[in-house]
Design a protein around this nucleic acid. Structure first.
Lengths: 252, 252
DNA sequence: CGACTAGTTGAGGCCAGTCAATGTTGGTGG
DNA sequence: CCACCAACATTGACTGGCCTCAACTAGTCG
């Protein structure tokens, strides 16, 4: 469960830095989701000057680990990440499932060290947002400053929803909500909301939802049984998302 | 469970604005915990110019509700608050337990509306931090800018820990962790870590920990039975916090 | 082809939830 | 001051949803 990758402790395995002569936020397909949202020409250009590096992370590679010195935020350009929180006693839980366009590493701002672990679920690529320069730039560009805070705040709200899920919903409701949430996020990225491929194993999904993998597996089967979804391993098709929604919203 | 206070829907019941001729962050006993942390004389003074209003919220009064327009953050000066997240289907869960010196309202930054509800657990008082002015000031004062981000980020980390608690810990571990956490926070505020009065009912604690009130009540009794704590309603004395810690940290 | 990882399914047990009765506390008005 | 009431808390008996343990299957990669 720990590192699937052989070893080299505390190294960013599978991480290859590459300097691009130009990486343009202004032409990036994700600019309407990402940090540059709403920036004008000039602002975009100045951001480009600061965001000069990308990192490739191969499947199962770690982007950062708890305790690593915080130097940068990362914008996911391609691929998918999970973030994991670790307890002192070795217990761990998937805390986030992050798609392209999202910013990760925000937990590191608090005490200059990352507090959780980010692992790529498939071969991925992130833009490095060096925190110092970004922060200084944000002093001059109100929109950028606002975007940063906005992203943090929305994460907070997302986690509130997650806490509600973990604290007061049944296993079935959790899975239904998870599927609807993923569907919605794929949709805002221009992909199908009806049909997608999950990048997590049953065990990772279970951990994320506060369940056990057997329970998740059973639930996939039973939702398929009742005709709400169609599952083939990690490929999921939502056949009746209205019914899924009803599963979640049944008032007590 | 909803509003214990008679009615006046969507009004800030029990809220009384009062302008103080001078409210000084620089002399506030909480300045080492709060937003002004690390600010120099000049910065402190400029913050003071912006933080001119305080609000009194009586027990069970709401400081803000979901959907209210976001205009300000609030620093708790005196008292205790809980924040509650609400689901569309009426379910609700206590998402936070906030002591003096903490900032609440951060969830409102994301979409210019608060997404959760803040209610006072006892007669309390907050400093109003009007967001626009604070934001503009943060452009000029790097420390203030940093503090804002830091507070947000730490909240994120705190919620990660909460997700781990809700997702992978037993009822007993949850309560033990809760008590240790509260003890620690009282300690950093200069109060006893051994003895304190909880400001939440059993039901609120249960909701916060993803349990039912009966379970929490039983756990209080059984922890007392085994000599780890002493309980008298909401007054708690930790008799053996090392043992509590061991309860939490038992590796699986 | 064998070893390994991921996923499915079944049988049984336990932890926490549910329902219900009773006890305790604190605020209010006579 | 005390009686009363409502909110809060405790405790017991029972139930059930999810976990645990375990066997088996399907796909993948060297």
């Amino acid at each position: 469960m720990r590192d699937a990758v052989p070893a080299q402790p505390n190294t960013c395995q599978g991480v290859v830095a590459l300097h691009e002569l130009r990486s343009h936020c202004g032409t990036c397909g994700l600019r309407t989701l990402c940090l540059p949202l709403g920036l004008d020409e000039a602002g975009m250009h100045r951001l480009d000057e600061v965001v000069t590096t990308r990192i490739r992370v191969r499947r199962k590679g770690m982007l950062y680990r708890p305790g690593d010195r915080f130097t940068a935020l990362y914008a996911i350009r391609i691929g998918t990440f999970k973030t994991i929180v670790l307890a002192e006693d070795g217990r761990e839980q998937v805390a986030g499932y992050h798609l392209a366009g999202e910013i990760i590493g925000l937990d590191g701002i608090g005490d200059d060290r990352y507090t959780c672990q980010a692992a790529a679920l498939e071969d991925s690529e992130v833009c490095v947002l060096p925190f110092g320069p970004i922060d200084r730039l944000s002093a001059e560009i109100p929109t950028l400053r606002r975007n940063l805070l906005r992203i943090l705040s929305r994460d907070l709200t997302r986690e509130h929803a997650m806490m509600l899920l973990l604290g007061s919903r049944s296993a079935e409701e959790r899975l239904a909500l998870f599927l609807l949430n993923v569907a919605e996020r794929y949709q805002t990225r221009g992909y199908s909301a009806r049909e997608f491929v999950l990048r997590m194993t049953r065990e990772e999904i279970a951990s994320y939802l506060g369940l056990k993998l057997e329970t998740v597996s059973r639930l996939f089967s039973s939702l398929q049984e009742s005709g709400l979804i169609q599952v083939q391993g990690r490929a999921v098709k939502l056949l009746d998302s209205a019914a899924l929604r009803r599963l979640v919203d049944r008032r007590e």
